[in-house]
Nucleic acid binder design. Sequence first.
DNA 1: CGAGCCCTTGAAACTCGTCAATGATCGTGG
DNA 2: CCACGATCATTGACGAGTTTCAAGGGCTCG
Lengths: 242, 242
Amino acid sequence: MDNVLVKKLQGYARLCEEDQRVLNAVVRDVRTVPAHTDLAREGEKSAFVHLVLEGFACRYKFTAEGNRQIMAFLVPGDFCDLHVVVLKQMDHSIGTISPCKVVDIPHEQILALLQRPRLSLAMLCAALVDSAVLREWLVNVGQRGARQRLGHVFCELLLRLRIVGLADNGYELPLSQTDLADTIGTSSVHLNRVLQELRQENLISWKGETLAIHDIDRLMKLSGFNSNYLHIGMQGADESAL
Amino acid sequence: MDNVLVKKLQGYARLCEEDQRVLNAVVRDVRTVPAHTDLAREGEKSAFVHLVLEGFACRYKFTAEGNRQIMAFLVPGDFCDLHVVVLKQMDHSIGTISPCKVVDIPHEQILALLQRPRLSLAMLCAALVDSAVLREWLVNVGQRGARQRLGHVFCELLLRLRIVGLADNGYELPLSQTDLADTIGTSSVHLNRVLQELRQENLISWKGETLAIHDIDRLMKLSGFNSNYLHIGMQGADESAL
DNA sequence: CGAGCCCTTGAAACTCGTCAATGATCGTGG
DNA sequence: CCACGATCATTGACGAGTTTCAAGGGCTCG
């Protein structure tokens, strides 16, 4: 039974058995973290890289006025803060949204992973895709209306969660409406109204923590969603690179 | 006389003489590119990594509705598309804004640079800072009003251009108002009005291509600017890392 | 049963976008 | 040398999208 990390990284490079064994070894001391708990805080430097195995976490930052922007969702299989290996301090915070299972990985272990060419390539790809996602979010918030923005987020999560086997035509979305509002940069009041529009048009339903997408094609078209930025299914590209 | 690349990377790691020599060797065949010319296009895969030596370029993307979002400014010393070494295709485009001097660097030469530990560390840092900038832009567009957003961009460019010796209390800003509008996600009409407010409050002046910032402290405070995300002056952090 | 959190709704105010028109500047060709 | 077109900056008026304030209802959990 492969863990989500293996599942995800295999999308970027052909991992050999030993690569997979090493990855599975990293996922030993799993820790359960309650919802709404910080894994890393702006200004600090963590001794560990955090990996999410279950649940939703996020990258976020508060403005001087006290408004929160969520800058990334961290779903099972995602490294939260690979950059702490190199940078002196965090420039943003990372916190859980739902209860999570996470692994704290010491720097040396990360460096060991990077010694293996295929793993290194896969992790680099994953990091580059994270950047690509971030760019798309900027486009989303900068150029699209609230309806489109919301739909876009739903589409992206669907594809990302499918990669790790956590979605079919819907998925568990353990967010509050306020979380979503802070993601797409609207007030929670407005988010609520937009959400109801999507529901009434029979595009989605969202009860409890379960999101169902009824017409993904229409939702994608409506929100201007193009999946190319996720670089899905292009096996690591240049394997000669590293 | 050091080139801008050396100047920038020295901010991230102590480069030895040989490192600098290698970098200077990379900056050989400088090419002059007119304004408004694409260096790389969404969907393609370039054989070269592009480095800006003079002028302004940008990362951008069009939405399905034909709106443009600028996702990054590429100023002298910036690599445009290091990721093409690894990923199969571009998920966004890169184009010049003003006339530029750029270098086309073949993949092998990039890989050669990465063989040198200090250079590798410095380039990694630069890439991580690029991501940090991107995150801050998302916060900017998602959470701040147009005044703040505009001020924030002006502040950031001031600090970034100072690193490569191209700014004191102002700098050459060869952008159209439309470019700026596409950066902060407003209409050009609205941008124009906000710009005039900043001028009337004696915060800035901008004639021709020269931007002067009259009161950087007040501008930073007004726009909620905190420079920590630029990671300036923290010499590469963990030099043991790589 | 009460406290707290989240979702929902309404009304009023405001930021910002769109449309449209007028100037200003600049390079090009007649 | 001037006329022309093109690009960019500016302005006004109007409307749409969004925020804010305020209040009420439902749910969970101790």
